[in-house]
């Protein structure tokens, strides 16, 4: 190799060393893609770069983001998915709404709704970890059970406008809806606990290699059980957020919500097999996929093409992610 060739290789090696690797790279790529989307849309329609867009995207992120956090914990623990998270959230929303209609004050109504989520999480843990049913089968069954039972009792509930829930959640802090801050707090706590605390490291260890974790004295069943319960807790909180956003809560969930949750987690770099990934990547993924629909409408793309574009962006991003994983 010539001297100039060696110099070039060394320079490239130095540049490469500066580039983030692994999950940091996932986050960076997603954030850069998001930035490119925002800049391009802003250039086309300057009105896009406004507080209105921030509010719209914040609302897009809040409800789904809390569910993403819950399912992310389950995924990280190696227990795959919780497909019942959406209907659990909807039912929690119906519970809090119904109790408010019946004259309950907000704190006990909130507690009952969140406890319902915890109960469903515990039931999922029991089905998966004690009865040995596959997580997808167990949580899918739970999804049908909760949604079926809910529909027997209630179709929709109108939420009183003067209730504490509507009054408080309707406001904003620093120009951003309060529901977004709720999501951000939940997200940050979970991300920090997983990354920096002993229970978090246990979760990652069990998700990465359950046998090795067991050899170190960690109980995978206990860790994964807690993961399901926390996912239920997140679903309960998501239900409160959902109930605060409009005049009605209905017993049916928007079609494809569970698919969206899982897409965000996979795009954010969480491994399907558990134990790998960072919540910073998941947040970047949530940000990107929550901004995309707003940008698409601003670009004037017709409704028929919207799911095609969203699907395409997701497929390309997942393919790139998968290739990177294989390389590693």
């Amino acid at each position: 190799m010539s001297t100039s060739g060696i110099a070039l290789t060394n320079r490239w090696a130095r540049v490469s060393a500066l580039a983030p690797r692994g999950h940091g790279a996932t986050t960076l790529v997603l954030l850069l893609t998001w930035l490119a989307l925002v800049v391009a849309t802003g250039l086309r329609a300057p009105g896009f770069l406004s507080g209105q867009t921030v509010v719209a995207v914040a609302f897009n992120m809040a409800f789904v983001g809390i569910m993403v956090t819950g399912v992310g914990i389950v995924m990280m623990s190696g227990a795959e998915f919780d497909l019942s998270v959406g209907v659990t959230a909807v039912t929690s929303a119906l519970i809090v709404a119904q109790l408010l209609v019946e004259g309950w004050s907000f704190p006990p109504a909130m507690l009952v709704a969140v406890l319902f989520g915890v109960l469903i999480g515990a039931a999922n843990a029991w089905l998966v970890l004690w009865l040995g049913i596959h997580p997808i089968v167990a949580t899918l069954g739970m999804m049908f059970l909760v949604s079926g039972v809910t529909r027997i009792f209630v179709d929709f509930v109108a939420i009183p406008r003067d209730s504490f829930l509507r009054q408080q959640a309707a406001g904003a802090w620093l120009g951003v809806p309060r529901v977004f801050w709720v999501m951000l707090v939940v997200f940050t706590i979970v991300g920090l606990v997983i990354r920096s605390t002993r229970p978090g490291r246990h979760l990652v260890a069990v998700g990465g290699n359950a046998q090795a974790a067991r050899a170190r004295g960690i109980s995978p069943r206990r860790v994964q059980g807690v993961a399901f319960v926390l996912c239920g807790l997140c679903a309960g909180i998501a239900g409160l957020v959902l109930a605060s956003q409009g005049d009605i809560v209905q017993s049916s969930l928007t079609a494809g919500t569970e698919f969206r949750v899982i897409s965000i987690l996979l795009l954010g770099g969480l491994a399907l097999t558990g134990g790998r990934g960072r919540f910073s990547g998941v947040f970047a993924s949530l940000l990107l996929l929550s901004t995309l629909p707003t940008a698409i409408v601003t670009w004037g793309v017709s409704s028929s093409w919207q799911p095609v574009i969203e699907g395409l962006v997701l497929a390309v991003a997942l393919a790139v992610n998968s290739l990177r994983e294989k390389k590693r």
């Binding site: 329609a45 009105g47 896009f48 406004s50 209105q52 867009t53 509010v55 719209a56 609302f59 897009n60 409800f63 959902l242 956003q245 409009g246 005049d247 009605i248 809560v249 209905q250 049916s252 969930l253 928007t254 079609a255 629909p293 707003t294 698409i296 409408v297 601003t298 004037g300 409704s303 028929s304 919207q306």
Partner: peptide
Amino acid sequence: RNSPTTPDGAQGVARDILVS
């Protein structure tokens, strides 16, 4: 625009239209 029939789904679509 195409919209889900659920209230939260419709809210999302409507927000995007209003922002545009």
